[in-house]
Design a protein around this nucleic acid. Structure first.
Lengths: 345, 345
DNA sequence: GTGCTTTTCGAAAACGATTTCGTTAATAAT
DNA sequence: ATTATTAACGAAATCGTTTTCGAAAAGCAC
C-alpha cells in the first residue's frame, strides 16, 4: 500500500506541489476554488503528511523523551500515565525509557534521546546519579530539560518536586502526636536527595518536639523493598529498643514492617505505629491499612510536562525562558497503622 | 549548538559528502587512509547522523508503538518494562500510549502511530474493542502488528497470550481440591475474551468435578476494581448462599473480597477460600496472602516484542512471514487465602 | 490603453543522509 | 605499449515537505 504524497495530489489536479502544500496549511495565497479541490482530493485519498519529511524540514519531532528509574512502581507509573495522556492532547508522543537505577544506562538513554532528536526530555534521576555531565549535555544541545521528583540542585533547569523534608516532618509529627515516644526511621539510600530530605524532616520533627535524636534508630535501605522493611522490622524487634513508631521512607518498606509485626503478633497501632510514604494503591487495602504521605504522582507528571512544553514553545520562538521550580503540596493520610489523637490514651 | 553534518566533515577534509558517508558505513570503496581520517574527525566533532534525514531516506523510524489499556497496573507495567528494555537492546525505541479502555482513543492512537510511521505496533485491546477495522488498517498499511493478552481471534496476525481458560480451570480446581463445594465466580466484563475464557474454565472445572453450575453464583464486574470485589463480597455474604470459595477474575477484585470478609470477621481460608488471578505484587503482602494465578507479564512482553521484530525484519527483506500465536504457561500460586489439601480436614 | 495594486500560482532551494552509477587513476595483464 | 581490471572517489538523484521569492494574471483607477 503506497502512501499518498503531495506530488500525487498535485499531478492529479494539474497544479504544483507548492500550491497543494499551501492549500492544506491555510496559506492565504491560494484561491478558494483550488483549496477546495485540494482538500477534497486529499481527503478522498486519505493523505497524511510524511512525518519523516516534516521532521526533517521543521527540525522538530513532536516527540518527547521520558526517563524514569522504574516503571513497575505505583508512583512512577502514575507519573507516566499523566505525561503520556497530557502530551498526546498537546500533539506530542512520548518515548519512555527506564534507567533501572543505573547511571550508565541513564547516560546511554540520554544519548539515544538526543540522537532521536526529541523536542524535550523529562527525567527523574536514578539513585546512583552522582555526576551530571550527561544532563548538562542536554542543555548544551539546546534541548529543554525538566527534572522531577528525583532531582539534583546542581543543574540550571526547571524542576517539579514535593517538599520531601516537610512531608517527612509532617509524617513524623503525626507519629508524635499520636503518642509515639521512640520513633525509628527506615531511610532510603544515602545518595538521592529525597532520602536525605526525608531523613532531615524526621530529625527536625524530633528536635521540635524535644525528642533526642538517636542514631541507632536509623536503618538504611539499599533497594528500598518490602523485604528490607521486613528485615529491619525484625532487627528492631530483636534489638528490643522499645520502639513505638516507625517512619519508613516509602510504602513497600512500611508494608514489610507491618507484615513482620503482624507475623509475630505485635499489635499495630496499639503497640507500634507505622507510617509510610507515597500512598501506593495497596496501602489502603492491607490490614491494618497504612497511614502514609500523599505524593501526587499524576499532578507531578502534569506539571513537569506543562513546564517542558512551555520551554519548547519559548525555544521555538527564540524567546527567553525563565526556569521554574514547582513544589507540589503533600498531605498526611491517616489510616489504621497509626493512632489518631482522639484515641491517644 | 549547531549539530555536525556530513557536509562539514567533508568540507573540512576536502572530500565529498558521499565518501564521508561511505567511510562511516563500512563501504568497501574507500581507502583505509581516508576512512581513518573521516572516523577520526567524526569522533572529534562528535558527529551523530541526523535521524530525521536517516528516517526519510531509509523509510524506517526504528521506533515501535505500544498501546495498552492502562499502565498503572502491575501486569501491564511489567509488560511495558520488558518491551522497553528489550527493544532498546535491539536498537528500537518505544512510544507508549494508553487507551484507558476506550475504543475511540484506541482508534485515534493507532492513527497517531501510523502517522508517526512506527516500524511496528504492539497492542493489548481495550475492553470495549468490538470492531477491528482500525487494526485491519495497520495490517493494510503493511505495518507489522502483534496482539498480546487482550486479543481478538478475528485478526490475522501474531499473538501472545496465556491460556486463560486452562488457568481459570486450574484455579477453580485448586479451590475444589482444597475442599470447597460452593464456589462463586466474580467475572470480568462480558466482552473481552479473557473474561469469557476464565468464566468457561471455571465452569468446566465444576463440571469435571460433578458440581452443578449455579448461575446465581456469578457476579459480573464492570471496572474490575477493589471496590467491586468488596461490594460483591458483601452481596455474597448477605445473600447467605453458603459460599465457601470465591474465584475472582483478577487480584484487586479478590483483595476487595478479602477486605470485606476480614472486616466482618469471617475467617479466610477456614470459612471461605479466595483465589485471584495475575499475581499482583501486593497479593503476597496482604493478610492473609492471596492464592492466585501466575501470569508472566515480563515474558509476555518479551515474546511479543520478539515476534514483532522478527516480522519487521522479514518485511524489510521482503520475505514471507508466518504469523504465530504463542501461549505462555501459567501456574497456581498457593498462599494462605486457600487451604492446601494436606490440611483439608 | 497605461500604470498600479492585489490575487494566485509555481520554481527552486532548503532539510541531511543514502545510494546508484559513472569517472578517473592506479595497477595488473598481455 | 596497450588493454583490461580494480580501487577510490564524487555528482547527482532521492526521500517528501516547507517556505521564500519572483512572476504571471487579474482587477482597478485614470
Amino acid at each position: 500500500m503506497k502512501e499518498v504524497t503531495l506530488k500525487e495530489i498535485a499531478q492529479e489536479l494539474g497544479i504544483s506541489i507548492t500550491t497543494v502544500s499551501k492549500a492544506l496549511k491555510n496559506y492565504t495565497d491560494v484561491s478558494p476554488k483550488t483549496r477546495k479541490a485540494v482538500l477534497k482530493l486529499a481527503h478522498k485519498l486519505d493523505y497524511k503528511p510524511n512525518s519523516f519529511a516534516v521532521n526533517l524540514r521543521t527540525q522538530e519531532s513532536k516527540t518527547i523523551g521520558l526517563i524514569i528509574p522504574e516503571i513497575v512502581h505505583h508512583f512512577f507509573s502514575s507519573i507516566v500515565n499523566a505525561i503520556i495522556e497530557k502530551a498526546e492532547k498537546k500533539g506530542y508522543l512520548v518515548i519512555t525509557l527506564q534507567s533501572n537505577e543505573s547511571l550508565e544506562l541513564e547516560k546511554k538513554q540520554i544519548d539515544l534521546l538526543l540522537d532521536k532528536r526529541v523536542d524535550g526530555i523529562l527525567i527523574s534521576l536514578s539513585n546512583n546519579t552522582k555526576t551530571i555531565e550527561h544532563l548538562q549535555k542536554v542543555i548544551d544541545h539546546n534541548v529543554p530539560l525538566v527534572l522531577f521528583d528525583k532531582i539534583t540542585k546542581l543543574l540550571n533547569c526547571s524542576k517539579v518536586v514535593i517538599d520531601d523534608r516537610k512531608a517527612a516532618y509532617d509524617a513524623t509529627c503525626h507519629l508524635i502526636n499520636s503518642g509515639c515516644k521512640k520513633i525509628a526511621h527506615i531511610r532510603g539510600p544515602l545518595n538521592p536527595q529525597n532520602a536525605i530530605d526525608r531523613f532531615l524532616g524526621y530529625k527536625k520533627a524530633l528536635e521540635d518536639n524535644k525528642i533526642t535524636f538517636d542514631k541507632s534508630l536509623i536503618y538504611t535501605c539499599e533497594k528500598v523493598t518490602f523485604e528490607e522493611g521486613y528485615g529491619f522490622a525484625k532487627q528492631i524487634h530483636t534489638e528490643q529498643k522499645d520502639v513505638d513508631g516507625v517512619f519508613a521512607v516509602t510504602d513497600p518498606v512500611a508494608i514489610g514492617v507491618i507484615a513482620y509485626f503482624n507475623e509475630v503478633g505485635i499489635k499495630i497501632p496499639q503497640q507500634i505505629s507505622i507510617i509510610g510514604f507515597s500512598n501506593w494503591f495497596m496501602s489502603s487495602v492491607i490490614s491494618p491499612s497504612l497511614s502514609t504521605i500523599d505524593q501526587p504522582g499524576f499532578e507531578m507528571g502534569k506539571s513537569a510536562l506543562k513546564l517542558l512544553l512551555k520551554e519548547i514553545k519559548a525555544l521555538k520562538k527564540h524567546k527567553e525562558f525563565q526556569h521554574q521550580t514547582i513544589v507540589l503540596p503533600t498531605g498526611v493520610i491517616k489510616r489504621n497503622s497509626t493512632l489518631n489523637y482522639f484515641s491517644k490514651n
